[in-house]
Design a protein around this nucleic acid. Structure first.
Lengths: 333, 333
DNA sequence: CTGAAAGCGCTTACAG
DNA sequence: CTGAAAGCGCTTACAG
């Protein structure tokens, strides 16, 4: 049961190794009966082509690198499911790189990725500095490795394709919803870290607030629950808040817990909404209204787009925007 | 900037390619000044060894495969963080395989993994049938690829090393805690899917229940929230339940929501506990008591153990059990 | 300490 | 439609 090579198959099928290779990779170039004989032997011997030899000879790896910031974020994990499902369909393997922000500079990780000879890169890190962006561009142009930004965008970039939703529009819509309810003091709770997508949510929020001549109030939190609690308690001192938009469901739930402690009924006194539509939203009481982000699909479509790029197919859209929707449950009027 | 090969380096450094290879892989076999000259050229040319050629020639890939059932499970995702951090320390790359239960048989995925020539396998799927276990054994023995079961175990297996906590003991302890509170009708809510770790939690529960001469009541749920709700409503009809142990935090939270709807105070009337100590537990009100599972560490230790196995180091412990703890918050007396 | 050469297991023009 | 042969970029005994 030690590994059969292409020579073993060729011998057993009484053909040359070139024919075995063709039977696998270009079946139409082989006479049907020969092909079947070869395929049968492959089956019998449990033959699997050695990935290294194949990669070396063909100069293609059928491997993509996926670069993620932190797997424990629910959105990242769910995207991976979408990516993996599509990768399997197109027979790509996934090399996974998780950034450990403190230890290894992203640039080093990217160099590792280049050395690994991947055919393409899925970039899920949604904090992108100008410097990082330049480096991505150089990888794309110097090494000709296609890159797709997945659930993130870089403003005014028309070189690197991306897949996401229109977070600006979503931010606008959900803010508008609260304004239409008659809310006047609507806070947005965003993150200290400069995630690209949260910038967009904020921009949409600001647009809606300004259109309605209200006062914008953006707070940035680390996301740590204990710290949130402290901040949120402040909100109830002046009693002026009547709407809250959190960039993540879990932050919204965290706020609701503090509101209950202060005996402020939701949604009667305050409308609360989140982003993503995770399990947190469903498990919360009252059930959280939020923007639904099709995160699995974003991963899947990102991977699909990358396969096209790797095949040098013509891409009409370089920036794919998937649909989102507002899921109104119990925390809005 | 297109890729330099080992020949380019050898040429520029005026040595043979064998010397370049040694300078990289066995520096002590090369005269210091030669080595430095080679290393300088490598730096200048930005040379990175081609991973395929290296893998083909050396028959080692410095790559491990990680096989996971579903990335969206919080425990799996967090384990990945631990695995990736340690993998980087030991310079291993990670090939990620996510099972899509319906589509591709696990056996096929495992064959793919073997073909990818990985040096080791981290197996995180915690539903293991006898057949799957046999297949794992054959991979380990026929192909000599080390395997580590991470956060799962296979009963009475002394061949495949594993890293987890003592779920049986944890199940026992948490049940004992409720019994000590004076609870008499303690339910365990487990899963329909036969996760190995949940079997152990159940075993521990049963042991404690029987010791106390109580009646065991195990319910198995699909985990879908809507279905849970239906089931849980049943519990309140006969009013006999006074303790609930869920194998996952989110199931416990789900139950608490139904309890509130039925106006049953927690923990006064019913003690509720979960497993894992996820964000769900902290975000719930009252805050959920639960068994804390050091899931990041399980991943990290699993990866570390695998590196030892791949280096053929002597392993004293084949079954590593990490410590767990009981985190008592507001849902227990 | 260093080099020449074989070999790892494939793919792919090139002939036929 | 099929085969012989070169080549992908490395590693590693084997000599010297």
């Amino acid at each position: 049961m030690s590994k059969a090579t292409i020579y073993d198959v060729a011998g057993a099928a009484r053909v040359s190794l070139a024919t075995v290779s063709r039977a696998i990779n270009n079946p139409e170039k082989v006479k049907p009966e020969t092909r079947e004989r070869v395929l049968r032997v492959i089956e019998e011997l449990g033959y699997k082509p050695n990935a290294f030899a194949k990669g070396l000879a063909s100069r293609k790896s059928t491997t993509v690198a996926v670069l993620v910031p932190d797997m424990s974020r629910a959105s990242i994990a769910e995207m991976m499911n979408g990516i993996a499902d599509i990768a399997r369909v197109y027979k790509y393997s996934i090399l996974l790189y998780i950034l450990d922000h403190e230890e290894t500079p992203e640039e080093d990780v990217l160099k590792e990725i280049v050395a690994a000879q991947v055919d393409g890169i899925l970039y899920l890190n949604d904090e992108i500095t100008d410097k990082q962006h330049d480096f991505l561009l150089s990888i794309k142009n110097d090494y000709k490795i296609p890159i797709v930004l997945t659930n993130t965008i870089f403003p005014d970039d028309d070189e690197i394709p991306s897949v996401s939703i229109d977070y600006d529009k979503a931010g606008y819509e959900i803010t508008k919803k609260l304004i239409d309810e008659g809310r006047k003091n609507i806070y947005m709770v965003s993150t200290v870290r400069k995630y690209m997508v949260n910038d967009q949510k904020e921009a949409g929020y600001l647009r809606a607030i300004q259109e309605a001549s209200l006062e914008p109030k953006i707070m940035r939190t680390s996301g740590r629950i204990s710290i949130n609690t402290e901040h949120f308690n402040e909100y109830f001192k002046d009693q002026k808040i009547d709407g809250l938009i959190a960039v993540r469901d879990s932050i919204a739930v965290s706020f609701m817990n503090v509101a209950r402690q202060n005996n402020v009924p939701i949604p009667q006194n305050i409308s609360v909404v989140g982003f993503q539509n995770t399990k947190y939203a469903l498990l919360a009481r009252p059930k959280l209204s939020c923007v639904d982000v099709p995160i699995y699909d974003i991963g899947a479509v990102g991977m699909r787009l990358l396969t096209k790029l790797m095949n040098q197919e013509d891409i009409t859209e370089r920036e794919i925007i998937l649909d989102h929707s507002l899921v109104l449950r119990e925390t809005t009027l």
